[in-house]
Each structure stands twice: as C-alpha cells, then as structure tokens.
C-alpha cells in the first residue's frame, strides 16, 4: 500500500486528462505511421469491450426489440397481476408481470426504445446547440461571449426540474416536450465547455495563422476548433445520457414524465416504487437497466476519448500493464 518508490508507468505516460484538449497541439506524437483499427484497440481493453457490447445490445434491443414482442408490452391481464419472475409462464413470464399483468420483459424491451428515443435526441440537441453557441462565443470573445455566458447563467439559475414541471403541466407532457425541456436544461453545460475550449484555442498559433490567411471564422471554427474540442464535448454528451435518463425518471416520479401507455425505464422505476416491498422486480429490473447502460456509457466514453484523440490514441496500443493512468471523466462533466 505504501510504496515510496516512484512508479515509472504513471510518471512517463500519465497526462493531465483534465485539460486534454489543450495539450494535443504540441503533444509529442506517437511513432506509429498508421493508427491501428479501432476494434483492435477496443479488443485490448476488456472493460471498454464489455461496455461496448452492452451498449450495442441495448441499442439493438431498442431498435428491433419491438418487432419481436408484438403487443405484449401493453397486453393486460388483470388475472395475472404481479407474478414473480419464474420459468412457469414461458419466455415473456421470465421476469414476472407488473400490476396490470403485463410482461415485465416485454415492457423492458419496449421501454428501451422509448428511453433512447427521448435520451438520444435530447442529448444531441443540447450538444449541437450548446457546442455551436459556445464555440462561436469563445472564438469571437467580447460581447458575444458575454451574452452567451449570461444566457447560460439564466438557464442554470432556474432549477431545471421546476421548468420541467411548469412546462409539462401546462403543455401536455408529450415525449417531444420532454425532449425539448431536457435539451434546453443541458445546453449551458456544452456552452460553457465549448466556450472554454475555443477561447483557449483562438490564441493558438495555428488559429492565428488561419486567420492571417483570411479564412472565414466559420471555417476556422469548423476546421480547427471543432476537431480539438469534440472529444471533450462527446465525453460530456455520453455522460449526459445518465443525467437525462435519471431526470426523465424523476419527472415520472412527479407524474409528468412519459405518459402511459408509452413506457420508459424511468417510468417503470417510478411506477414500481410503490411495489418495492411486494414486487421488487417491477422497479429493480428497469433500475438495473439504467445503471448498466449509464455505467457502460461512462466506461466507453473514457475509452472513446482516448481513441478519438490523436495525441493520446497511442496509449491504447500499449500493453495493458502500462496503460493505467487514463482517467475516466473530464472535469467539465457536470451533473
């Protein structure tokens, strides 16, 4: 435990991931001519590989699961209410039934689709809007930067759950409204991150050079700033899935999340909480689905961050023993 000798691996290869985006320009590049294929990189990292498989599975189920379950997710049978998980009732009875006698397995599959259908657009919207605004603001500086940052302050000063409650009670709680609310609530996070990155980059030599040659600012942002800021932004985005799914679940707890007969994991957890003592499987199984998905997303995000960063990708090609120091989460990640 207390080993006073310096650890050569950590010393040599570790890097302050906290400001990874800033260092890439000058980082001493790896010697290899061609970057190795990404799946080979992935195969070398067991944790990331497992995470990738889990995520792929979730996406496949979300996309194609509905084709197999038919109407089993909504088919009710009040006589079969609250059956515990068992092998006696066929494949769809494997994970038990909920209070309306619907197959929990079928509902988990159906909910995977809805959950991603809400979470993916919400994250993408906030990512695109927030990053674009943030990079624009950070690159130009001055009043633009000030305005953008104050907009972010305004949004952050409203408790997001409160806006959600007001808006969703007033304008029916449709999936589209939920996506919009979640997206708006998360815009400031990307805006701040993107602004910080691009404000730092705009004084760099290569950006200066491009400007001197008369490149329009839109192109500079697109060609020079975006590629460097992107890994950080993508990491934040991946981790945001967690936030979005949990917020959607909290909205369901307050009764304004996804509306039945649609179903999401968050709604299942919220509705099942009443049965925690009598029928644990209704709330626990979708909860596990959320945890598995978000943990996988986090692990994979850390890996993608390394893999998409030309200055750091070489770490992944090292033998396993020596890769210890990669850090998972950038400090920009905000809950």
């Amino acid at each position: 435990m207390t080993d006073p000798t310096p650890r050569p691996d950590a010393e040599t290869y570790a890097d302050a991931d906290a400001d990874a985006g800033t260092g890439t320009g000058t980082e001493n590049c790896p010697p290899s001519a061609r970057p190795p294929r990404w799946w080979r990189l992935l195969g070398r990292d067991r944790g990331a590989a497992v995470a990738a498989v889990v995520l792929a599975l979730v996406f496949l189920v979300a996309l194609f699961g509905r084709l197999f379950i038919g109407d089993r997710a909504i088919r009710q049978d009040l006589g079969a209410s609250l059956r515990p998980p068992s092998l006696d009732h066929g494949f769809y009875g494997l994970l038990g039934t909920d209070v309306l006698g619907r197959s929990v397995l079928a509902r988990l599959v159906e909910a995977a689709g809805t959950t991603l259908y809400v979470a993916v657009p919400a994250v993408l919207c906030s990512l695109v809007i927030g990053s674009a605004l943030g990079m624009w603001a950070g690159y130009h500086g001055g009043w633009r930067e000030n305005v953008a940052m104050r907009v972010a302050d305004v949004i952050l000063s409203f408790p997001s759950l409160l806006i959600a409650v007001v808006v969703l009670y007033v304008f029916a709680p449709s999936a589209l409204n939920i996506v919009l609310i979640l997206a708006i609530a998360r815009v400031p996070v990307y805006l701040r991150t993107a602004r910080a990155e691009s404000a730092e980059l705009r004084s760099r030599l290569f950006v200066d050079a491009a400007r001197t040659f008369g490149t329009p600012s839109r192109n500079i942002i697109h060609r020079h700033i975006l590629p460097i800021a992107l890994p950080t932004l993508l990491t934040v985005a991946t981790l945001d899935f967690c936030f979005v799914m949990l917020t959607e679940s909290s909205l369901s707890f307050l009764g304004i999340g996804i509306q039945p007969p649609d179903v999401s994991w968050g709604l299942m957890v919220a509705q099942g909480r009443q049965y925690l003592q009598t029928a644990w499987w209704i709330a626990v199984l979708p909860g596990i689905a959320i945890v598995l998905t978000t943990v996988s997303a986090t692990v994979l995000a850390a890996w993608v961050r390394l893999a998409t960063d030309p200055g750091q990708r070489w770490r992944l090609t090292l033998p396993k023993k020596r890769r210890g120091a990669r850090a998972a989460v950038p400090p920009e990640m905000i809950a």
Partner: peptide
Amino acid sequence: IRPFGVLVQVVRGSMVGALSAPYVK
C-alpha cells in the same frame, strides 16, 4: 450519491495528472 459519484471521477482524473507533474517528481 450523485455528486459523490461524479466527484470521485473528477478527483481521480486530475490527481492522476497531478501525480505525474514535475513538482511531484
């Protein structure tokens, strides 16, 4: 639970960086 979970990751990330910094050496 949530702030703690996030902060552990952040601390770990920046500590790993700091531990390899020249002054620590």
